[in-house]
Amino acid sequence: MKLRVQGTGPTSPFLSARDLFETEHDLSLPVYVQLRDDPDVRTWAGHYDDRHVLNISRQAASSAMARELALHELAHMARYEQEHPSHIQSTEEVLYLALAGKSVERRKLSHCYQIANHMKDIYADDITLAVGPGEKLLSFFESSLAAAVADRPESPPRPGFERLSASADPEITAVNAAFALALAERHELVDDDHRLYDLAHAAAMDAPHIEFEEFKRRFRELARDPDSSSYRQVLVEATRAYVGGSGPAAD
């Protein structure tokens, strides 16, 4: 697998990620790592006819998570080359099928994209966690969820209602918690008394209209090798579960 780092910055995390990845997988197209100045740029993979591009900020490339972030994006590239349904299914098509005839808030529509990305991440991390350790990923989930749960509003809550995760939207925070716990359980990264369970419970309590356990089950039990039709149906059902309502089947 060919990997080239473009721009000034560390190279060892990407070379280390490549070495881990190549113990089980390979890519047909070369990978260009684009180091960006903007520290707010999220790590993401771009796919083109002749290459993949791993976009990452220099700040992230110098962090303790750099190798894990790179390995995760290499796994996305592998899924794309495999034409895995999670990586070639149009999210827009799913939203049209799931939400036809419904009026949906803009924030909830953006959350539906995030749910689709969570499913992509689970399939990518089935590769990531097969070739590398999961301790740093688990710590990242724990710290991120702890920050959301601890972020309380400045103003007092309404009588009889204490909001546990304030700044982040509580509904998608609950779904994010379900995703984190589902991935941890799917790969047996947590014991029953792990702190992630307490944090996820707090996030779920903040969003009583979200079926937390059902979302966790959906994420955890995603079929390892779905066909296009069954994957589309699962994503349609998850979308409807989040925004409410029902409709015709995806096929």
Rank of each mutant, 00 (worst) to 15 (best):
A150I: 00
I88F: 06
A78L: 14
P30R: 00
R106W: 05
H201V: 05
G46L: 12
S155F: 05
H84D: 14
D37T: 03
L222R: 09
S155D: 07
G9F: 00
V104G: 05
H72P: 07
A148K: 13
V175G: 09
R51E: 14
S103V: 09
D49F: 04
V149E: 10
E237V: 06
R220H: 08
K2A: 15
Q59T: 04
D192P: 10
A250P: 05
K108D: 14
A60N: 05
S62F: 00
N117E: 15
A168N: 13
E22R: 14
A177Q: 13
R186I: 03
G7T: 01
F21P: 08
P208C: 07
D191F: 01
Y231P: 06
L222E: 13
H209M: 11
E171V: 01
S16E: 14
S57M: 09
Q233D: 12
A150Y: 03
S230H: 04
E237P: 08
R217N: 07
V175W: 02
E188M: 11
I115Y: 02
R218E: 15
R18I: 01
G160Y: 03
D49M: 08
A177N: 14
G7V: 01
H209L: 15
A207H: 04
V190W: 09
F219W: 01
E135Q: 13
Q114G: 14
P170I: 00
A148L: 12
L69D: 03
R36F: 00
P133A: 00
H47C: 10
R195E: 13
H118I: 03
A223N: 08
R36N: 10
Q34L: 12
S165R: 07
E22V: 09
Y80K: 06
F219C: 06
E92C: 08
Y231I: 06
P156H: 09
T173R: 12
Q114P: 04
D169K: 00
E22H: 07
D191P: 09
Q89T: 15
T239K: 09
A148N: 08
A166R: 06
K2T: 13
Y123C: 11
L69W: 03
A70M: 03
E92V: 11
L97I: 01
G132W: 01
K136V: 07
P85Q: 02
E162D: 15
T173V: 02
E214W: 08
P156W: 02
A64W: 03
V236D: 07
F141Q: 12
R163N: 11
Q114C: 05
H72F: 02
R152E: 13
H76S: 12
A45F: 05
S28E: 15
D40Y: 00
Y242C: 07
E162H: 07
I127S: 13
V149Y: 06
P13R: 06
A61L: 06
Q89K: 10
P208I: 00
R106V: 11
R67F: 01
L222G: 05
I122K: 09
R42D: 08
P248H: 03
M205W: 06
K2F: 12
E22Y: 02
Q34Y: 04
V131L: 12
M205A: 10
H201E: 15
